[in-house]
Design a protein around this nucleic acid. Structure first.
Length: 274
DNA sequence: TCCCAGGCTCTCT
DNA sequence: AGAGAGCATGGG
């Protein structure tokens, strides 16, 4: 665990390894963190807002308190995981090693499951700028005011809406999927938190009962919010990377922490082609 | 203007 | 069970 100092109004994580804010927030796992003109990042999760920034080798956090940090944000930022060990375990494969070194500051965020499910339903056959726009409209129209942001609306809130209500999102054919997901979650047919405790296969099967949720969206939810780091979402970028860089197959070295390898590969191939 | 985007559903073999 | 069209919308 990192060394954490609770200063007045600031929580300082000293000498942080493998935690780059730009990489972590821009690797496509989360859509609602914004960078201010002074370089600080601000965001909102589970109705809690936060400001976070790099200060030399430290990470500094404002807008929370000791208890909320220890009980919520420490897990959100996956501070208990040793990414250095994982990167070492990838290093036998040269391409995987290069990808891991390029994205070595990425941490998998443990996000709120409903927000993650809804966000990745919206992500299908879509591009990242537009995904962010739709999610922003979802929060502004149906969330609650939360500092300078709006919270992500609950499944219960969305479940009470109609397709006409959701037209403001301009989310196209995905609106009906959002509604189906909200109804199944709000009605208790699917208990997202319970999927943390079952096998990856079982959890994936449960999620795919929702209309508009296939293997890729399910894997993103499992990886980014339910602690299943064996999930390996295969999107167009990953398929391209596997075929162009890895001879079509996922490298066996990646299996122990496939989801983390996936993030490094995703970040790597997108950076190469930008 | 055109192509395509962190896919999935539905239909047709 | 595998392939392919269609899907809403708008960024580049």
């Amino acid at each position: 665990m990192n060394n954490i100092i609770f200063e007045e109004n600031i929580i300082r994580i000293t000498n942080v390894q493998n935690f780059d804010l730009e990489q972590t927030f821009n690797c496509g796992q989360a859509f609602r963190w914004h960078q201010k003109s002074n370089g600080h990042w601000i965001g909102c999760a589970d109705k809690k807002c936060l400001e976070i920034y790099n200060d030399g080798c430290d990470i500094c956090i404002q807008g929370t308190n000791r208890d909320t940090f220890l009980n919520f944000w420490a897990n959100y930022f996956d501070l208990g995981r040793n990414y250095g060990e994982i990167i070492d375990s990838f290093s036998k494969n040269p391409t995987l090693k290069a990808a891991a070194e390029t994205g070595s500051g990425i941490r998998i965020l443990n996000q709120e499951p409903w927000e993650t499910l809804c966000s990745f339903i919206i992500s299908q056959n879509n591009n990242i700028p537009r995904i962010k726009g739709i999610i922003e409209r979802l929060c502004e129209n149906f969330g609650e005011k939360c500092g300078e942001f709006y919270s992500f609306p609950s499944a219960q809130t969305i479940a009470r809406l109609t397709l006409d209500d959701l037209a403001v999102l301009r989310s196209g054919f995905r609106a009906k999927y959002i509604l189906d997901a909200a109804k199944k979650v709000a009605g208790g047919e699917i208990v997202l938190d319970a999927l943390k405790a079952v096998t990856f296969e079982e959890a994936q099967l449960q999620l795919m009962k929702i209309k508009g949720v296939g293997p890729k969206v399910a894997d993103c939810v499992l990886l980014f919010s339910l602690g299943h780091i064996d999930a390996f979402p295969k999107d167009v970028w990953i398929k391209r990377a596997l075929s162009e860089l890895f001879g079509g197959e996922m490298p066996p070295e990646a299996l122990s922490a496939a989801g983390i390898a996936q993030q490094y590969i995703f970040y790597y191939i997108r950076k190469k082609q930008s």
